[in-house]
Amino acid sequence: MHPIFRNTATLSAYMGLWTILAAALAALMRIPGDLNWSQALSISVPLCLLYAFVCLTPWYICRALPLGSAQVTRLLINQLAAAVLACTLWIGAARLLAFTMDLGPRLNPAVPQLVVLGLLLYLMSVALHYALLAVEASREAAVQTRDAELRALKSQINPHFLFNCLNSISALTSSDPVRARDMCVLLSDFLRKTLGLGERASISWREELELARTYLEVEQVRFGARLKVEMQVDDGCADCQVPPLVLQPLIENAIKHGIATMVEGGTIRLEGHIEDGRLAVRVENSFDPEAPSPRRHGLGLRNVRDRLRTRFGDAAHLHLAAEHDRFSAEMVFPCHKTIS
């Protein structure tokens, strides 16, 4: 349904506007001098009330032919054809009204003005509808941003990770109590760091990296010699402000779909550096291309992509590539040094 019908206030405001237009139209029709006020009004008021509804129809055409994505010529032809059609209806209705009141010939001198006005009003309504659609789209984008952030925060602690950790601790308590205690401390560190992130829009790359390091240390206990980590991160990146937990899913993915699929394990390589004022992060890992298909594939990575897009638009990208037995995720986004 057209959004104008969603509440009575906007509908009455809209109809009020058309009543004023009806008065203006009556004044215009009087200029040639063949009609008096009451005659002009008796034509213009019903005419404008009718046209008020005709001018709501662009809503459907505008939605079908959005600016930017629809072909320009196709858009112009369609909208102009609709305008001509609407205007024909407008003139036809005006003539019919005049005819029923025996004013037919007296309307004739005002017809050229009526044609121009009918076209203009319709095209103005087309423009207004495009503006309306733009407002709706931006409102929707805001909702999507919030959703993506919420999803990211909800998934910050993967239950699978947590329970596996607790199982490792449980195993270590009898065989190696010191390591069990170390792991408790590491896990607590990680949980404490992630807990406060909900209220913050950005954290420094230093903090994000620290979080990833703690996470990897915890996983190191689980996977032992199967997990090898290489890091090459420039110090220059440290103060870049990044969305919290933007790196975390990449690391998690490298473990779950990479290291965990290999009997002998493998290496996760993390690189970070500044490139033309942008932070470029690359996470590379080995994986078994013939591993059983994962059950929940790519949800974390899709979340990262959504968050980067809503935050940075076209200035950021996430590029994934699988080649033989190496998988890489490369993420590039603007590096702002102060909290935005």
């Binding site: 596996n164 199982n167 490792s168 449980s170 195993a171 270590l172 009898s174 065989s175 206990v221 689980r222 996977f223 032992g224 965990a260 009997v263």
Partner: peptide, 12 residues
Amino acid sequence: DDEELARQILRE
């Protein structure tokens, strides 16, 4: 189980 620690606790 692919995790050594997970096998270890079950064994114990």
